[in-house]
Design a binder for these strands. Structure first.
Lengths: 158, 158
DNA sequence: CTTATTGCAAATACTTTGCACCAGC
DNA sequence: GCTGGTGCAAAGTATTTGCAATAAG
């Protein structure tokens, strides 16, 4: 397990400790799973992945850890329209390319797209600055999401 | 009830019929409620509003109608982190100013902001065009959402 | 040693579904 | 008259919570 708490800086462990939380095996393992996948995982997906090597870790802990991570802004929680929430490392903490989601309302397919990201980032910066000044709001996460019909479903539609 | 199916064009009724659905009292009333509020309503909020004048309309119908509306792209469904989904007319069909949401993760407060909307619209147009060409994706709705800590919660934090 | 963390089982609550009846066209 | 729409009660299911046991510092 060469993996150890993120790219420099305080690292994962530091984030937890910095917020007054303890650093536990469960937390480390759950973050490792999130770090090493390219997919949008549900709590249960994560639970299963974790369970292979650490059968003692329960689903409840997964939920609680994810809540913490979301709260700390290290993980983003998405709603793709099926019932279950999906989780992804926030881009600052991910090796995955910065991207957004395109969700098909019919088949549920999710496409990660990376086009126009630069423009988005610029807009975000500007918006964020304006909003934090005007509303005193400290923004921890941002999401853009498009939905509609994917190519396949669009065709079948007719 | 001077209200009748939206601003010109096919109108609400036309949208339903155009998709092969029937135009019913329940549907009309539910849309009227959505049209006349400035708030992000949950299914139950809508049910209660409807129930005052039409006690025969049930919660199930509200859910089913909302599903249809979302599917047709006439209504957007939001997740603000409390459990219940919130619904809003898509901006093309709303008299409400085009806006986005700023959600406080601690107290749940939601601020509608309208700043930088022009820039967003421009970015959306561009992105949408690019994505539909590249992925054959027909985009029906778009959302941006920021979350973090509102002014109050931010202050108390320390 | 003190307090946060965890697993399990049970509870919660939003949302969906089965089915018989009713309304739109 | 057909078919889709609806209400009610019942089911479904992701997520949360209470509590006693455990591990972190």
């Amino acid at each position: 397990m060469p993996w150890r708490g993120g790219k420099g800086g305080p690292g994962w462990e530091g984030h937890f400790r910095g917020c007054g939380y303890r650093w536990t095996v469960s937390r480390e393992v759950i973050i490792e799973v999130l770090s090493s996948t390219r997919h949008h995982m549900s709590a249960e997906d994560i639970y299963h992945a974790v369970h292979k090597d650490y059968p003692a870790i329960g689903l409840t802990t997964v939920y609680r850890t994810l809540d913490l991570l979301v709260d700390m802004g290290l993980v983003l929680k998405f709603d793709f329209g099926d019932k279950r929430a999906r989780y992804e490392l926030a881009e600052e903490f991910s090796t995955k390319e910065h991207h957004h989601h395109l969700v098909c309302n019919r088949c549920g397919r999710v496409i990660d797209y990376t086009e126009f990201i630069d423009d988005e980032v610029e807009l975000f910066k500007k918006t964020e600055k304006g909003l934090s000044k005007k509303y005193g709001f400290q923004i921890k996460s941002r999401m853009i999401q498009f939905s509609g019909l994917c190519g396949n479903c669009n065709r079948e539609q007719k």
